[in-house]
């Protein structure tokens, strides 16, 4: 399966024109929107700390049945489209109150690009995953982007309650370009584990990544 260059160009163009992700903040339930605690353009922060124990910036207060609730930011970014006309008024549930524009970091752009471009091997079940010993040895020796996986070759081991099930590569001969999981940590079903591509696509992908690095310098 070859890479769709048109699709990649469109993706990069879209990221360039809107280098952020928009998160709409909606009311969780009906109630009176008592007060806005932010202004248009205010920088807000999402939950922080090692365990995300520090709550995000307070955005507005919503009251229902004498229960005044402070709605806090779940991502960091800048406030836009703040609907000031709602202040002091009754609002329905799921009403969009404001937007948080979350600027994409270099890592996030690369991750989005790779998820769109690579052939992904996802976790079939929620379990711990390991690279097959042979593959791991080769990656350690040669590095990512250089190790081939042939059809019917064992690439991963799924470990669940001490039972180990091998995962076999079913497609054509490809190269392992990216590993998305940490060995011995539980991966939720459906999350990507490995990203594969054809050997001739590797230089192109590396070029695009270095371009992204230039365009989105690390802050």
């Amino acid at each position: 399966m070859a890479i769709d260059h048109l699709k990649i160009n469109q993706l990069l163009q879209r990221l360039r024109s809107r280098p952020y992700r928009i998160y709409e903040v909606k009311t969780p339930h009906t109630g009176y929107l008592r007060e806005f605690l932010v202004k248009e353009g205010t920088e807000v922060k999402g939950p922080r700390g090692k365990w995300r124990e520090i709550p995000g910036t307070p955005l507005f207060t919503l009251e229902r049945e004498k229960n005044l609730k402070t709605i806090k930011a779940r991502v960091s970014g800048t406030i836009h489209n703040l609907r000031t006309e709602l202040e002091g008024r009754f609002v329905e549930a799921e009403e969009v109150v404001l937007e948080i524009r979350h600027p994409l970091s270099q890592e996030e752009v690369i991750s989005e690009f790779l998820r769109e471009t690579l052939i992904l091997i996802t976790a079939p079940e929620t379990a711990r995953y390991l690279l097959a010993p042979e593959i791991e040895k080769r990656i350690r020796k040669e590095g990512l982007g250089k190790v081939f996986v042939k059809p019917n070759e064992e690439i991963l081991i799924m470990s669940f309650m001490k039972r180990e099930t091998p995962i076999v590569h079913t497609g054509e001969t490809m190269v392992i370009f990216r590993i998305f999981f940490t060995p011995q940590e539980v991966v939720t079903a459906g999350e990507p584990l490995l990203g594969l591509c054809l050997q001739e696509e590797v230089p192109y992908l590396e070029r695009v990544i270095s371009r992204i690095c230039e365009e989105w310098p690390e802050k």
Binding site: H29, R64, E65, K66, N67, K69
Partner: peptide
């Protein structure tokens, strides 16, 4: 004896209603 609602501290993570 109070006529009001309160929010569970786990509401965000567990989706508890008021």
């Amino acid at each position: 004896l109070e006529d009001r609602t309160v929010t569970c501290p786990n509401a965000e993570t567990h989706g508890c209603p008021d």
